[in-house]
Nucleic acid binder design. Structure first.
Lengths: 350, 350
DNA sequence: ACCGGAAATTGATACGTATTAAGGACGGCG
DNA sequence: CGCCGTCCTTAATACGTATCAATTTCCGGT
C-alpha cells in the first residue's frame, strides 16, 4: 500500500468525463433536475465514475445539507451494556431491520465515550448530524441534550416515552399504563385483592406510568386503596424479610415488582422471601411489570409482561422517516405489551 | 416547527466576541497554536460560545480532515439473518466494542440489497467508502468485489480467512486447522481410532482448513488413512441410515461433522441415527467442528470447538486501524478456538 | 437567415471548520 | 528615532458537494 491515495472526487470525475463538477453532481445525486441531463452525458459521467472508483463523500454531502441515506442510533448507555445485551439487542434488531428495509444504512454512535457518562454534546461536539436523523435509546439520558437537539431541529425519535419540559418530542413507547393495569386485572381475576407494589424511587417516566397503571387497575378492579401497600425501594431502604412477613400478615397475597437495570428489586424480593421462609408462588404470588433485564440471573419464569422491543425499534425508524420526509412535527406512538403467564402467580383458593 | 433554526457557528461566536472566525477556531479546537491566544481573548470567546450554545459541527470538521472517524461493517448476508442471529451477534459485539474503544463510530451497511443479493458495488458505486475502513463478514461473498476493493486500496479486514487469487487480503481467522487437529487428538486419546468425516461439498476456505486439520490430526495420532471414511454431503447425496450402519459395521466409532449454515449435516446425521436406531453417544461418538449456527434447533450439547467470535471482531478492528494509521500492508491473524467437552463423545472401552 | 424557446450544461456560491502565511500592535534595544 | 522581534490576530483558502441562476447549445418554425 504505497501512498494513502485520496479518493477521487466529483472534480476528478468531471475532468475525466469532460464535463463540469455540477453536471457530475446532477448525474450522481440526480435530484429533481437529474432528468435534465442528456443520456449520453449521463453515461459518460457514470463510466468515468466507475473507472475512477468514485464514491460520494457523505461528510461533504451532509455538510451541504443533503441527505446521506444514513440513520443514526445513539444510546445513552454503551451500545451493548455487557450485562444487558439480551435486553437491548431486540431494539437494535428492530431498528436495523427497518432501516435496511427502507434502504438506509445504520450508523451506531459508539464513539461517544467509553467513560461511563455518554453525552450527545461531548466536548461541545454534536456528531449526530452526520446522519439524516437519529433513533435514541437508553435509560440514563440527559434532558438538556435532548432539549438542545430539539432546538436545533434535528430529527430524532426516542425509544421509550421521554418528556422534556417545553419541548415536544417524538417517541415510540410501550404502553406501561395499560399493561400494568391489565396485570392488576389479571391478579384480581385470580382472586388477589390485597396487593403490594414494589417500585423504585427514581421519578422517571416508566415508573410514573406503571404506578398510574397500577392505580387505574385498582379502580377498575374495585380494590380500595387501603388493601394495598406501596413500597419504594432504594439503596438505603431495601426490602426486608420482616416487611415481607408483615405484608403477608396483613393479608397481602400478591406483589407487583418493577424491574430495574440490575434486577435489584427482584433479587431483593427473592432474598427476603428466602430469608423469611416464604415460597413463591405458593405463599405469595409475584408479578413483574416488564422484562427483567438480566433474565439469566434469576432463573424463574416470572409472570410478567413483555415489551414489543423489536417492533418498537421498527416503528421508531418508521416515524423517523416520516419526520424526515413528510416534514411533520413531533409524533408519539404507544405499543401494546404482551402478558406472559409464567409460573410465579397462582390462583387464590376461595 | 416554526423557523428551521440553524445552530450557531463559529462565525456567530466570532461576531459576538468581536473577533474573527479563525480565532474562535483556535480557541475551541486549540491545536498546537491554541496557546498563542491571549487569555482575555480566550475568555471572551468561550463566554460568547457558552451564551450562544455553540457546538462544533463534526461534519464540517471531518470534511476538512478527510477522515470520518467511521468504520464500516459490511456483511454479505443480511446483517442479522433471522435464523442465525446468535451466530453473528458476537462478531458484531466484538466489532462494536473495539470500534467504540478506539473512539470511532460504526456504520452498518444494511441498505445493500432489497433483492437478496448483496453486492458492494451496487450501481457501480462503492458505498463502503463513506467509512474510513471496513470490516467484512459473511460466508457468501463475491470474490470479484473483494479483488476490486483491494485494487482500490480501500482498507478492509475480513473476519474469516478469505483468499482471492493475485491479491493479498487482510483477515482475522479462526484456526480451523489447529482446532480440528486437536479434536482428532482428543478422540484418539479417548480410544477412537476409526473415524468418519462428514464434510460439505463446497470448496471453501473453512472446509479445506478443517479437512487439512483432520489429515494433520490423523498423522499426529498415527491413524492410517484406511481407518477413515470421508463423506461429502450435498443435497443429492444426503447421509442415509444405511451408510451410517455401514460405517458402524466397519468399526467406525466416532464421526466428525462440519457445521453448515442451516445445520443440515448435523440434522442429517441425527435423522440417520434415529432411523437406524443408533444412539449418540452410546453407539457412536459425534464431534462438531465448530459452532452449529442454529444451536436452538438441535438441543444437544455437542462435543465441539467454539470460535472466539467476539475476539475475532475486536482484532479485526484493531488490524483495520493499523492499516489505516500505520500505513502497513495486508495482515493476517489466526486465533485459537476453544474445545468444548459437551456430551456427544464418550471414552471407548478397551 | 433569423429568432424564440426549450434543453443541456456550467459558473458561482454556500455549507462550517482548520490551517497557514501574513498582518498589526507593541515594546525593547541600539 | 528607527529597527527588529515577540506576541497576538486575521484574511484567505481548502475540503467535496448541492443548487440555482446564468449561459450556451440545439432545433424547429417562420
Amino acid at each position: 500500500m504505497a501512498g494513502q491515495r485520496r479518493s477521487p472526487t466529483q472534480v476528478d470525475v468531471a475532468r475525466r468525463a469532460g464535463v463540469s463538477q455540477a453536471t457530475v453532481s446532477l448525474v450522481i445525486s440526480g435530484g429533481a433536475l437529474g432528468n435534465q441531463v442528456a443520456e449520453s452525458t449521463r453515461q459518460a459521467v457514470l463510466q468515468a465514475a466507475a473507472e475512477l472508483g468514485y464514491t460520494v463523500n457523505a461528510v461533504a454531502r451532509s455538510l451541504k445539507g443533503g441527505r446521506n441515506r444514513m440513520l443514526g442510533l445513539y444510546t445513552f448507555e454503551p451500545v451493548f451494556p455487557v450485562d444487558q445485551r439480551d435486553f437491548y439487542f431486540p431494539f437494535l434488531l428492530g431498528v436495523e431491520e427497518a432501516t435496511a428495509a427502507y434502504g438506509y444504512d445504520l450508523l451506531l454512535f459508539s464513539s461517544a465515550g467509553s467513560g461511563g457518562d455518554r453525552r450527545i454534546y461531548a466536548g461541545g461536539v454534536n456528531r449526530l448530524k452526520v446522519a439524516d436523523g437519529c433513533v435514541l435509546l437508553g435509560r440514563h439520558l440527559h434532558r438538556d441534550d435532548l432539549a438542545e437537539l430539539a432546538k436545533e431541529d434535528f430529527p430524532f425519535v426516542f425509544v421509550g416515552r421521554r418528556e422534556v419540559p417545553g419541548v415536544e418530542l417524538s417517541y415510540v413507547a410501550a404502553d406501561y399504563v395499560g399493561a400494568t393495569s391489565e396485570m392488576v386485572a389479571h391478579l384480581a381475576r385470580l382472586g388477589h385483592r390485597r396487593l403490594a407494589y414494589l417500585k423504585v424511587t427514581d421519578d422517571r417516566e416508566w415508573t410514573r406510568d406503571r404506578e398510574a397503571g397500577f392505580r387505574q387497575g385498582l379502580v377498575a378492579a374495585g380494590i380500595p386503596d387501603d388493601q394495598v401497600r406501596v413500597f419504594a425501594m432504594d439503596e438505603r431502604a431495601a426490602l426486608s424479610a420482616v416487611r415481607l412477613q408483615d405484608w403477608l400478615a396483613a393479608g397481602i397475597t400478591a406483589v407487583l415488582v418493577e424491574p430495574t437495570d440490575d434486577d435489584s428489586a427482584i433479587v431483593a424480593l427473592e432474598n427476603a422471601a428466602a430469608e423469611a421462609g416464604v415460597r413463591i408462588p405458593d405463599d405469595v404470588s409475584v408479578a413483574v411489570l416488564g422484562d427483567p433485564p438480566l433474565s439469566e440471573a434469576t432463573a424463574r419464569d416470572w409472570t410478567r409482561f413483555t415489551l414489543p422491543r423489536e417492533q418498537m425499534g421498527r416503528e421508531a425508524v418508521r416515524i423517523l422517516l416520516e419526520l424526515l420526509n413528510d416534514n411533520v412535527s413531533a409524533r408519539q406512538l404507544y405499543l401494546d405489551c404482551t402478558q406472559v403467564a409464567g409460573d410465579s402467580v397462582t390462583e387464590l383458593p376461595e
